[in-house]
Design a protein around this nucleic acid. Structure first.
Length: 588
RNA sequence: CGGGGCGUAGCUCAGCUUGGUAGAGCGCCCGGUUUGGGACCGGGAGGUCGCAGGUUCGAAUCCUGUCGCCCCGACCA
């Protein structure tokens, strides 16, 4: 195929658009691939659509290889199925909701678990029909609080979402691995580095969940990896629990005056100055127990205070807290919250007081008290004595206080030991490009998807859900492949195979260019032909660089000697070749 | 939702402090000269200065309100 620039829908911009910050956004707009319509919503121009199509094609091929079949659902859906699974409420403000003329609630789907499940329920009723994997490539809608970075975080984005249906756990495992393997092939073909990290299943429910993260400093996810191969999103991190210690023989707790120690650091300073440890070692923040007050906003609108006790050198990671308390939302405790609980002495909160337990469901305050996994029985702490200006030293977990449970909310640090014993971890940033979930029976259960098994018994189907962010991947590829002059697409996703540039005004040049273009087409190349007659060479070269097709043929002054130049966009090398050899040289 | 920045021609921006009725570059149209790195000359089209009030003889400029956009944070694929 040959596409001529003289009648193509393309206009490049000489300057960066003022509303674009990240490189992929700037270049995709400047080079005429996309245009912004609304925050986080983009129109696709011909060039952009071609690249998107190339990525989708690779995904389709690998889905087919994995035995998944393509379908297509509407983006506009009725409320009911999402009401049944609870997601109409759980999605909160992130869901695009609208009403039709009759006043019925509709939504723009953020994902399609419900309708896929219902479709299979409509048509299938026997174990003989399973396993089944179906997928679609469809636009998704999420009303992000803050869309940003162009395509990297939009409110409309294209996603490949696949769903597997099995009636045994082993079957689900197999379907899951089949998709997971397909993802590895897809990202490898796209030339995208990825880490497969353990992820939090979160509001999606289910058990096993892994994210494909592309490591990049601009990523929004923090993940950890150990030298021994452990990789996990910090949201899914589980703390290595130390062994419990012997309580026998530990000294009794002692209360000391510690005026003006509202922060951990001031407390540690005072402790070292006035109450040094008996063995002479200095106290550190890790010897203190920090009790952080969190307010949970539950789905039904109720507000609950929870106090988390964690080592004083750790902070609460709000993302991890959201996971720990999902689906409730986390807010900082307000003055009003404290006013309702006069038993809490700000800055000196602790589980213990001379008058008995202060924190915990069975204590004086009745506030739920959860402990960091590191606060095991037999560990000894300096913590607030619930009296202004006093702390208690040597307070022993399991002897002097207990929690109502464990909470994984502390931040994860470089150097923390991996839970599988594979050594200390380092932290890295990544951008989520794919996610595989074992949903289990959550959706099938609530929507009533059951089949008859070999014994004629009704069994609930078990499902998996597998997503890839198509438009996000496009943006990441653009982010990775560019230079000062523009985009440089990998051949696998470039909008065209070859960009032919005819320069000058000599009719002989244009004749020669027609010959080259015809040869290339005959050789099977998809060709973009810059045949604009009155545009100077500088403009054409600049546009070619901006557009970023990796192989460029310059037809110009060399024509007099019977040669054209092959210009490699990435290496910037130009190689003269005979006009008649251009096509075969490029094919080789 | 908090913090910051910005809305003036198709695009990128100046003008606003110190009010006097709108500019530049690029792009676009016509004519001509150019053609291997974003050419040049001449002529031209194009703007309710985001919107609404207010102050003033007079507002892009000052005041109030409002809407929108971008960035950081919270939140999210």
């Amino acid at each position: 195929m040959v596409t001529r620039l003289t009648n193509y829908f393309l206009k490049t911009l000489r300057e960066d658009p003022s509303d674009a910050e990240v490189i992929s956004h700037r270049l995709l707009v400047r080079a005429g691939y996309i245009r912004r319509q609304a925050p986080g919503v983009f129109a696709w121009l011909p060039l952009g659509l071609k690249v998107k199509g190339k990525i989708e094609q690779i995904i389709r091929e690998e889905m087919t290889r994995a035995g998944a079949h393509e379908v297509h659902f509407p983006a506009l859906l009725p409320r009911e199925p999402y009401e049944v699974t609870g997601r109409w409420d759980e999605y909160g403000d992130g869901l695009f909701r609208l009403k039709d003329r009759k006043g019925s609630d509709m939504l723009l789907a953020p994902t399609h678990e419900e309708v896929f499940t219902l479709l299979v329920k409509d048509l299938y009723s026997s174990y003989k029909d399973l396993p089944l994997s179906i997928y679609q490539i469809q636009d998704k809608y999420r009303d992000e609080a803050r869309p940003r970075a162009g395509l990297l975080r939009g409110r409309e984005f294209t996603m490949k979402d696949a769903y597997s249906f099995d009636y045994t756990d082993a079957g689900l495992d197999a379907s899951y691995m089949s998709q997971r393997d397909a993802y590895e092939r897809i990202f490898t073909r796209l030339g995208l580095e990825y880490a497969i990290v353990k992820a939090d299943a979160g509001a999606m429910g289910g058990s096993r969940s892994e994210e494909f993260l592309h490591p990049t400093p601009v990523g929004e996810d923090t993940f950890v990896r150990s030298a021994g191969g452990y990789e996990a999103n910090v949201e899914a991190w589980t703390t290595l629990v130390p062994p419990t210690l012997d309580i026998e023989g530990l000294a009794a707790a002692e209360v000391f005056d510690t005026p003006n120690t509202p922060t951990i650091q001031t407390l540690v300073d005072v402790a070292n100055a006035e109450h040094p440890r008996s063995n002479g070692e200095a106290w550190t923040a890790a010897d203190t127990l920090k009790n952080v007050v969190l307010a949970l906003k539950h789905l039904d609108g109720t507000r609950e205070l929870v106090i988390v006790g964690l080592p004083g050198d750790r902070d609460v990671d709000l993302k991890r807290a959201e996971v720990a308390f999902a689906p409730a939302e986390i807010e900082a405790a307000t003055e009003a919250d404290f006013a309702k609980h006069p038993g809490l002495v700000k800055g000196y909160i602790g589980p213990w007081s001379e008058n008995g337990p202060v924190l915990g469901e069975k204590s004086a305050t009745g506030i739920r008290y959860l402990l960091d996994p590191r606060v095991v029985a037999g560990t000894s702490w300096i913590t607030g004595a619930n009296v202004d200006g006093k702390h208690v030293f040597g307070l022993v977990a399991g002897r002097d206080f207990v929690g109502d449970g464990v909470a994984e909310v502390a931040d994860v640090r470089a150097g923390d030991p991996a839970p599988d014993g594979s050594g200390p971890v380092e932290l890295a940033r990544g951008m989520e490009i794919g996610h595989v979930f074992q949903l289990g029976r959550k959706y099938a259960e609530s929507l009533g998807l059951k089949v008859l098994d070999e014994n004629g018994k009704l069994v609930t189907v078990t499902m998996g859900s597998y997503g890839i962010g198509v438009t996000r991947i496009l943006a990441i590829i653009a982010e990775l492949n560019n230079d000062d002059n523009g985009l440089i697409w990998p051949e696998t996703v470039a909008p065209f195979d070859v960009h032919v540039v005819a320069t000058g005004k000599d009719p002989a040049v244009f004749d020669a260019a027609e010959t080259v273009v015809a040869d290339l087409e005959a050789a099977g190349f998809d060709v973009l032909f810059d045949d604009r007659p009155k545009v100077s060479p500088g403009v054409k070269f600049g546009d070619a660089e901006l557009i970023g097709i990796p192989k460029i043929v310059i037809v110009g002054r060399g024509v007099a000697d019977g040669v054209v130049e092959l210009w490699d966009r990435r290496s910037n090398e130009r190689t003269p070749v005979a006009i008649a050899d251009a096509a075969s040289r490029l094919r080789g």
